[in-house]
Write a protein that binds this DNA or RNA. Structure first.
Lengths: 240, 240
DNA sequence: AAGTGGTCTAGACCACTAC
DNA sequence: TAGTGGTCTAGACCACTTA
């Protein structure tokens, strides 16, 4: 499979960045990279722009392109660099296997909040799925998801024990590529402490929001309660 | 002032989107826009790519370019839409006045971590500024900031009691437009509980990272500890 | 003055979607 | 098959930083 030029460059540069190959925290200039990889400067620029948008590097006009030191420092488990937004794909940690324990699986009428968030009518029923997620045997997150049955009619226990997003992509060619998320903290509840093995004074980190299909259709409302040590959300913010 | 071509296109399209000029939620195709604006297709693409990254539109290869209905319905879903990234500007809440109490203001040599994060030499001293932030008289955040003195030499007590970012923009024409942030939660320390009026089991939300000037120069490392009820970070995430 | 990233052009061909 | 966005090229010139 011939990979895209700009992705090859991205992957090669990322590899070299993590290998510490740019000790001065500075990348070669675009014209040199274009020579090195034997591609046009536009392709190099495409790769660098994407990496800058991901916060891996930043470009200083007139000076050069530099590595974001925080990017190397942060070994967060949660990042959105995978091929899709699915939790299963993104929570890979040092070779540990992600596991799923289904706590609840039912179909309910949508609350008013769900009607608003997912653009539903009162008669558009939704799956309510509660899952505990673990690395090997260490629980790290309780996930409550709501998915309209009109988008997928045939969810079952086997599917939701794996990655719903993967199933959608493979079986229905539906890709989840966008989301609006809120991140905040709360004291842990008794249920949190029991399931996530937290002490009395230890909190949960919460990430909740709406996931969208590629065409803009709201697909899922998700509420995720994390053991506080397992949620670190990194983001690059830019204005203007 | 001759504005950039792709920005003109962005602004024009945004204006038309909000005016409801694309009733079918669909933009003209790239080749048509290129004709309309009498520019190259690359420039149109540049504009559309930026708008897609902002969550304003969706591009579907093979189908066309579509408007994100949420963008029209709820403009406030996007954080950080002000003119800069300053805390003072962004933490406005229901007409309450933000106040600042300076807890610490000194100049120190940079730690190794700061040297790496802010690209400093060991002799590049930094301001260390600790401030308690309040709405009216309710404290909500403890902020510890480190700023290289080589970027601003004349900070004083009066300035840091207000908005440093505003001061920079007005007095030195330096705009802070980018940041790399991590958001996570921790149990509160004794100091947190005292300053933020938290109970034993209540946590802090933490936002920390680097703020950059428009030209890419790292300007400040900031560590912010929030009363958990006052940190809610909203973000739009998109892959591919 | 030299070097860097930014903008813009004109065009070719590819990959995917809809009909 | 026609139409859409995606990738890629080769090159020109501009804006900014550094020395």
């Amino acid at each position: 499979m011939a990979e895209l030029v700009y992705k090859q460059i991205m992957n090669d540069l990322k590899k070299k960045i993590f290998a510490g190959q740019f000790a001065d925290m500075r990348l070669p200039d675009e014209r040199t990279l274009s020579e090195t990889y034997q591609v046009s400067r536009s392709s190099v620029k495409h790769a660098l722009t994407k990496m800058a948008n991901d916060g891996i590097i930043f470009k200083k006009r007139g000076s050069g392109t530099f590595i974001n030191p925080l990017y190397i420092k942060n070994e967060s488990i949660f990042n959105y660099e995978g091929s899709n937004l699915g939790v299963t794909d993104n929570f890979q940690m040092h070779g540990k296997k992600p596991k799923v324990k289904v706590l609840n699986f039912e179909v309910i009428p949508p609350t008013e909040e769900l009607q608003r968030d997912l653009f539903l009518q009162p008669h558009d029923f939704v799956y309510k799925i509660i899952r505990l997620r673990l690395f090997d045997d260490v629980p790290f997150m309780i996930e409550t998801g709501y998915i309209p049955i009109k988008i997928v009619q045939n969810l079952n226990h086997t599917i939701i024990e794996g990655s719903i997003f993967n199933y959608l992509e493979k079986a229905h060619n539906l890709a989840v590529t966008k989301s609006f998320l809120s991140i905040y903290a709360e004291p842990s509840t008794g249920n949190d402490r029991e399931l996530l093995q937290l002490n009395e004074n230890e909190p949960v980190g919460i990430m909740e929001g709406i996931f969208f299909l590629d065409n803009g259709t709201p697909f899922e409302f998700s509420h995720m309660r994390f053991h506080y040590q397992y949620l670190k959300f990194n983001t690059f913010v830019s204005v203007q």
